[in-house]
């Protein structure tokens, strides 16, 4: 597999703030690579250093084999970019934007096909200002796809969209990857990173605190699997004792939560259920919760992603 992006010791400071503080990673061809982290983590700064829009203070960046600062002009023919903050003139129509941007590239894909692929055909004559958030995003993705790029950057592509629109955009991104393109995206939705990305870099305060496949991140954490159930009345002391052997116990009124480590011989849920039936206890609403990237972030930084 080819290495598409190489970042080594990237740093960028604004005054006293290190927006990006010594970041290194690589992205391979055909990957959906995600950067996830809370507001101000440094995702946009990193992406825009890769795009050549910002100049790093130090470190080396190679995108498709070239330095974006020195060869930005050749790069923008092969890279598609969707920026976190950008706009089109309010009265520009959807088709006009695509038509105009097509003229910037010596070789571009047929925008009429993109219009169909991105479900914007009905909005062909709508002015930019009259598009919904999701439609604007799709238009920006279409613009990013115009040069038929090898690599596409999507910065915060589903922020502000409802879940349905978000899922539609995920399908789109998978589709782009299926056509052999590499995708680098940022998000502050852990769920998005988990569902969509092949590999995820978790950023916090300008640093990468973890980088791996979502599954490996969750696994490596030995994150706790949880079993939750409710009782009528209080927890009998004998059961409490037995359950505490299985994992850390948390009682809130009638609801009991047991946090168990991963990688156990017997699954936590069967152990809990057999204890409950052995002691003949009536329980209801029993369910299990798998750890998510959200838990990974919490355990790595001691903070929740969103308060």
């Amino acid at each position: 597999m080819n290495t598409i992006v190489q970042v080594e010791g990237l740093r960028k400071t604004y005054g006293a703030i290190a927006a990006v503080d010594d970041i290194s990673f690589e992205v391979q061809e055909g990957e959906i690579f995600g950067m996830v982290g809370p507001n101000g983590a440094g995702k946009t700064t990193t992406i825009e250093c890769l795009e050549g829009l910002r100049k790093p203070d130090s470190g080396t960046v190679r995108v498709l084999g070239v330095d974006p600062q020195r060869e930005g002009q050749t790069l923008c023919l092969r890279v598609g970019m969707q920026l976190q903050q950008s706009n089109l003139p309010e009265r520009m129509k959807v088709w006009e934007a695509l038509d105009l941007y097509t003229s910037f590239y010596p070789k571009a894909v047929d925008w009429k096909e993109l219009l169909v692929q991105l479900g914007l055909e009905e909005k062909r004559n709508a002015p930019f200002s009259k598009l919904s958030g999701g439609q604007k995003q799709r238009l920006f993705i279409a613009l990013a796809l115009l040069p038929d790029p090898q690599l596409i950057f999507l910065d915060e592509l589903t922020t502000g969209l409802d879940p349905q629109a978000r899922h539609a955009i995920w399908d789109l991104v998978r589709d782009v990857r299926a056509r052999g393109k590499t995708v680098i995206l940022s998000t502050h939705f852990m769920e998005e990173a988990e569902k969509l990305c092949d590999r995820v870099a978790i950023l916090d305060l300008g640093r990468i605190v973890a980088l791996d496949t979502p599954a490996a991140l969750i696994h490596s954490l030995e994150a706790e699997q949880r079993v939750i159930f409710s009782l009528d009345g209080s927890l009998p002391p004998a059961l409490e004792k037995a359950l505490s052997m299985a994992g850390r116990l948390e009682v809130q009124g009638e609801q009991v939560t047991i946090h168990g480590k991963n990688g156990r011989k017997v699954p936590l849920v069967s152990e809990v259920v057999s204890l409950l039936t052995e002691q003949g206890i009536n329980f209801r609403d029993l369910r299990t919760e798998q750890p998510t990237l959200e838990d990974v972030f919490l355990s790595l930084t001691g903070r929740k992603m969103r308060e």
């Binding site: 923008c76 903050q85 706009n87 910037f104």
Partner: peptide, 16 residues
Amino acid sequence: TYRENGILRRLRTTPV
């Protein structure tokens, strides 16, 4: 206005 609204910013990502 083009500068302030990020319209130029979007143009900047193209070879124009």
